[in-house]
């Protein structure tokens, strides 16, 4: 009996002649924090977009909590939460209103809605800012609110695309703590992408390294470090496996979006 909550088989995505994700086989266990690492343009965000049903697969399959992303997208959407890399909380609404809308979209019954929202705000430490417009929040507060929105319906698996990009060290540490707490207390499986290797090292139970759309290696951070020698860091592992190439196919729009997000959060 497998305890995998997410399985991909030959997951592939092509944009014209360019293969962004190439025959990816991943297995994520229930309740773990799984990190997908790789240089810019490696295909990490494309993987998340396919798994969250935003992008159709060009080939292969993916199953989340027993549901197929291609054939049962609505069922998949009910069991996942998603925090995109870009800013997804609406700045022209209050924190409470952002949560309220998604509570309705995720069909949390009206009898429990208020309680869920305020408990979620309390968990994130945002009760005092609940009725302030989100555009007055700090970067860390916005990220916390986004995680609150995405976990309000108690998803079985939460996708976080570069959750700490653009945050100061203090806010980053707070976000890490929240992710760990969420995983430990509600048993939510976390699937995150990051290019901060210290983050992956201290946060993830297992990591997979991707390059040019392909999975290079998967394992626990300790196993990967041990695989290339004593006293190696995850940075060494990353450089060892990705070859430190800076010429991979980075998309101009993606760079612009990352920088804009960093600027808004910063």
């Amino acid at each position: 009996m497998t305890s995998n909550i997410l399985t991909t088989q030959g997951l592939t995505r092509q944009f014209g002649k360019m293969t962004a994700v190439d025959n990816l086989n991943l297995e994520v266990e229930k309740g773990e924090i799984f990190g997908l690492l790789g240089p810019n343009g490696a295909g990490k965000s494309t993987v998340i977009k396919m798994l969250t049903t935003l992008l159709p697969l060009s080939g292969g399959s993916a199953t989340l909590a027993g549901y197929d992303v291609t054939h049962q997208p609505t069922a998949v959407r009910r069991v996942i939460g998603y925090v995109p890399q870009a800013l997804s909380a609406d700045g022209t609404l209050t924190g409470y209103e952002n949560l309220l809308v998604f509570a309705k979209l995720y069909e949390i019954p009206s009898s429990r809605r208020q309680r869920c929202i305020y408990e979620s705000l309390a968990f994130m430490g945002l009760e005092d800012a609940a009725h302030r417009l989100v555009r007055t929040y700090s970067g860390g507060m916005i990220r916390k609110l986004e995680i609150a929105i995405s976990s309000l319906h108690q998803p079985q698996i939460l996708f976080l695309d570069e959750p700490t990009v653009g945050l100061d060290p203090l806010a980053r540490a707070q976000v890490w703590q929240l992710i760990q707490q969420l995983c430990a207390e509600s048993g939510t499986t976390i699937f995150l992408t990051t290019h901060f290797l210290d983050e992956a090292n201290s946060l993830c139970n297992r990591v997979a390294i991707m390059q040019q759309g392909k999975e290079i290696i998967t394992g626990t951070p300790d196993d990967l470090k041990a695989s290339i020698g004593n006293h190696a860091t995850l940075d060494d592992v990353f450089i060892h496996y990705t070859g430190n190439q800076l010429t991979s196919g980075v998309n101009y729009r993606e760079i612009a979006r990352t920088r804009r997000t960093a600027e808004r959060l910063g």
Binding site: T52, L54, R77, A86, S88, F102, R260
Partner: peptide, 14 residues
């Protein structure tokens, strides 16, 4: 779309 707000809606069961 440029902000990223739309992605979260599309990933929800709406």
């Amino acid at each position: 779309r440029d902000l990223g707000v739309i992605h979260k809606f599309l990933a929800s069961p709406t």
